[in-house]
Design a protein around this nucleic acid. Sequence first.
DNA 1: TCATAATTGAGGTGCGCACCTCAACGCAAG
DNA 2: CTTGCGTTGAGGTGCGCACCTCAATTATGA
Lengths: 350, 350
Amino acid sequence: MRPTTRDLAEAAGVSLATVDRVLNERPNVSNKAAKSVAEAIERIGFVRNPAAVVLARNKTYRFRFVLPTSGDQYLAELIARVAEAKEALRADSTEVEAAQIPMSDPHHVAKYLAGIDHDMMDGVAVMAPESPQVRDALVRLVERGVKVVQFLSGQEHLESADYVGVDNFAAGATAGKIAGRFVGARRGKIMVVAETMMALDSIQRRLGFDSIINAQFPHLESLPSLETYGDEKRADLIIQRTLQHNPDTVAVYVLSSEARMPLTAIWNTQGSLPLTVVAHERTPFSEQALMDERIDAVIAQDPGHAVRSAVRIMRARSDHRELVASQERIRIEVLLKENLQFDCSGGSRT
Amino acid sequence: MRPTTRDLAEAAGVSLATVDRVLNERPNVSNKAAKSVAEAIERIGFVRNPAAVVLARNKTYRFRFVLPTSGDQYLAELIARVAEAKEALRADSTEVEAAQIPMSDPHHVAKYLAGIDHDMMDGVAVMAPESPQVRDALVRLVERGVKVVQFLSGQEHLESADYVGVDNFAAGATAGKIAGRFVGARRGKIMVVAETMMALDSIQRRLGFDSIINAQFPHLESLPSLETYGDEKRADLIIQRTLQHNPDTVAVYVLSSEARMPLTAIWNTQGSLPLTVVAHERTPFSEQALMDERIDAVIAQDPGHAVRSAVRIMRARSDHRELVASQERIRIEVLLKENLQFDCSGGSRT
DNA sequence: TCATAATTGAGGTGCGCACCTCAACGCAAG
DNA sequence: CTTGCGTTGAGGTGCGCACCTCAATTATGA
């Protein structure tokens, strides 16, 4: 039989009350008692029964995803995944919710975060652009006892908070490798388009992309980043101009998660250049474009996995538990038309 | 407050005992009572507290992975992941173990499976080659009340059992797309090597691979599959001969998870042909070869994810629970040197 | 009609742990 | 010596549910 706290108390030669004090890090425990309990835990292989802990604590965890307001399809996907997690975790006394706030003004974001406290929220997963104000606000959040996860966002990573998401330099490098090899032996230019280069993720992807193109594909030249600022007319204009100036463009790399705007601009403008197209993130748009062979590859990070991972981390931190590190690593996925698996590939009922 | 069984009983106008009978599918419940409980569940939004269920049942789940005996590095990785899961699930009253048996004789496998019963094992995840005997044994296992997961193996999927693993046709197609595009405009032959083509997975991968090469890369010709049978001398011999007969070989596709043998044979033989190499599964060998740029791409399925998914499924089936389908889909990963992330990419401590 | 079976309710116990109270003890400073 | 504080133990309660027993009631069939 598996040892219980009662067995532990007996093995450690102390009372249940002391075992309880040690296990839950309550005050008024002598070093001697703490040590003898710790030793007994090792000796008899005691493991807390999480079900019993949850039941006895009878605590409801509250986690919030703080996301940008935006019409981005990827963001919509994220929100759908949060809703999915919310549903799935309802049984586990875990309330998950998504909040959308404008991210353009760092002060506003910081103020929002300052309004969150430990007595209303156990953890928050924040997807916000890099800025000193936000960093400070996050640090103070942590100090207030709220578990913070930096969620898919380009903060310089805080020491005191976990990060969920891919290494954007590596993601850019992967895009570069795919683009370079897919282009083949042809010489030419690569057009690089972003919504904005203000975000740290964009910069890192760009750096990763260039590092590979420069090192491994010297016959290709990647052009300066075009920024659409989410403006359709502007996108049309700068892309048209760039294509005219660079008729030897052989590939396009879209850094941002929103690829629809620049790509439709390109497809409208372009004559019949056989462009290799690499974009980021799986969305209905990118999925369809992959199927139509108008995008060659998509570099993606699974939003469902990211959401679940963030929740697992916030939960584990709240309980002072360890977690399986390998499970929390978000993979840099390479999606082609061929490995775009829809729904469940197998499975059945019993 | 969240409704409990007591609230449910009250809302349904029945006793706790009847609620218990309905929830746990015990006999002696009238249709009327069952219906009124079901209606009340919907009405008050009752959700069972899993922690309380686990605690009250106080049941230990026993799951076994049945794997082949083999020196394959991928298999070693799988076993390590099972061990990891075993450790992580110790707290959750879930005993996970791995058994290795020879898979060469289907009768032997079937006999082994016949020796497993519901009173010793709640679920098994079986990785065994396709054969009628094994299929029958699996069906009977299910009938005996054991939850069965077909694990990464090429059974024609049973109706009554779940499957964990990738679609091998799609995996082969992905390999074909990568190989074809990486080769570029050059004409030539593609050497295809497998340990054996007897396994259904190999056949499916081959079919997927050919479907893409034939349709999208008519300037490439994929040669008949070479089978090493796991014999080093044989591998050397047939590969050497094939390379001599086909000096215009531009790419190599290794179907099996064990790529070391054929690839070292090729690297020993080959003069200085710039071969594009695509293999399957992430192993220390394939990892190293990717880093050295001797393999261009690896098509992989994450063994850790597969193991965790199998356990989640067996557990959910044992509890008659639903599961998040999207979480159980094993992705067809494309690994390049650039997205080979090691350990944890982020994270920290609080 | 009565016998039999099916259905229902009341009530209890225990799963392993968290959390609380209160009394008792030892120790050191005043 | 007393006062006060840190430490320890005994014991109780409750979390939400599963599982059991035993009567009481209702339906069913002969």
